[in-house]
């Protein structure tokens, strides 16, 4: 078990190195950093001196080493656009995206899993067909349309909920959270719903498919033949077996939510990482783009690591194999 986690950690380090390499190449080879920093009137000699001072004439490997070790120390460089340290910019934006992602994940799980179980247990019912059809419509519509429809409905027509920004936030030593004020929650609902709808459908359909499969399995038939009460049969025997493959996908999806919340964030003007990334693209703010890449990759790796550990926790077959 320890060995297994260690193996995964080492793999993660290599993944992060590869991503850092890509981010670094972006930084180094897309455009010329010196001409990005200097104006037209800078002389060629000055440029050369700057180049030498910044170490841009050093060998590639040395530059990459410097880049990675700076990253490790949390020194992400400066934004071209705002001249602020990138680490600060990320730190102010990250909580917004993470909170949005977590809430939308929770929505999708809270609705998706029960709905998946329900539709699996009554595969032919009217309600099942209705749910399947509505959610199909839900995924077929692009995220931004859902966002705009929600804004129109709840923001403009009914006027119940704010349509942009984070509303009231509280600063908890560098981490601004929307969770502590009513206004913050109100602002969170629409974007989280928008981001969660796709997730929800996916989770539900996945749970349903797996559950149908599990319900056909021999151990469920055997448990039925032993007269185990149906509630236990469905929610203890069947659901836990259903969740094993579902967890992997949910984990991957959560990474995806963090990474691709861009559309939702721009629809709701949500001050998160995605919006930051969009602004950076517009201004060719390469340092921010590079760091964004590395941070997102880090979350992907982290979530996958967590999923692997959850796996061991749930499935005794893996646990024992690793231990023996």
């Amino acid at each position: 078990m320890v060995y297994f986690i260690l193996k995964r950690l080492i793999q993660s380090v290599f993944v992060m190195l590869a991503v850092a390499l890509i981010a670094f190449s972006l930084f180094r080879f897309v455009g010329d950093p010196v001409s990005q920093m200097t104006g037209v009137e800078t002389s060629v000699e000055d440029r050369e001196r700057l180049r030498e001072d910044l170490g841009l004439n050093d060998p590639f490997a040395l530059q990459f080493y410097r880049f990675s070790s700076d990253m490790l120390r949390g020194d992400f460089g400066f934004s071209y656009r705002t001249r602020q340290p990138v680490s600060e910019m990320i730190a102010t934006r990250l909580p917004a995206t993470l909170e949005l992602g977590i809430v939308s994940l929770i929505i999708s799980l809270l609705v998706g899993i029960p709905a998946g179980v329900f539709t699996a247990l009554r595969p032919r019912g009217f309600a099942t067909q209705a749910i399947l059809l509505t959610t199909l419509v839900g995924v077929s519509i692009p995220t931004f349309v859902i966002g705009i429809v929600l804004i129109f409905l709840f923001g403009v027509q009914l006027g119940w909920l704010p349509t942009f920004g984070r509303g009231g936030t509280t600063d908890l030593g560098g981490w601004t959270t929307s969770f502590l004020t009513v206004d913050g929650w109100r602002s969170l609902i629409l974007p989280a719903l928008t981001l969660g709808v796709y997730q929800l459908t996916l989770t539900m359909r996945l749970v349903r498919a797996e559950m149908l499969e599990v319900m056909r399995s021999d151990y469920i038939r055997f448990a039925t033949a032993r007269g185990i009460p149906y509630r236990k049969l469905h929610f203890k025997h069947a659901l836990s077996n259903t969740m094993i493959p579902v967890i992997t996908i949910i984990g991957l999806q959560f990474g995806g939510v963090i990474a691709f919340s861009i559309v939702t964030e721009s629809v709701f003007q949500w001050p998160g990482m995605g919006l930051l990334f969009l602004e950076s693209i517009r201004f060719v703010d390469i340092p921010v783009m590079g760091v964004y890449l590395v941070v997102i990759a880090f979350f992907f790796v982290l979530v996958n690591l967590l999923v692997d550990m959850l796996y061991i926790l749930i499935d005794p077959r893996l646990r024992v194999k690793e231990a023996s």
Binding site: S217, D218, F222, A225, H237
Partner: peptide, 16 residues
């Protein structure tokens, strides 16, 4: 009660 064919698959793998 009933006994099934394949002992590999007729027990819930996640429960003792």
């Amino acid at each position: 009660s009933m006994i099934f064919q394949d002992p590999q698959t007729s027990l819930n793998p996640l429960m003792t």
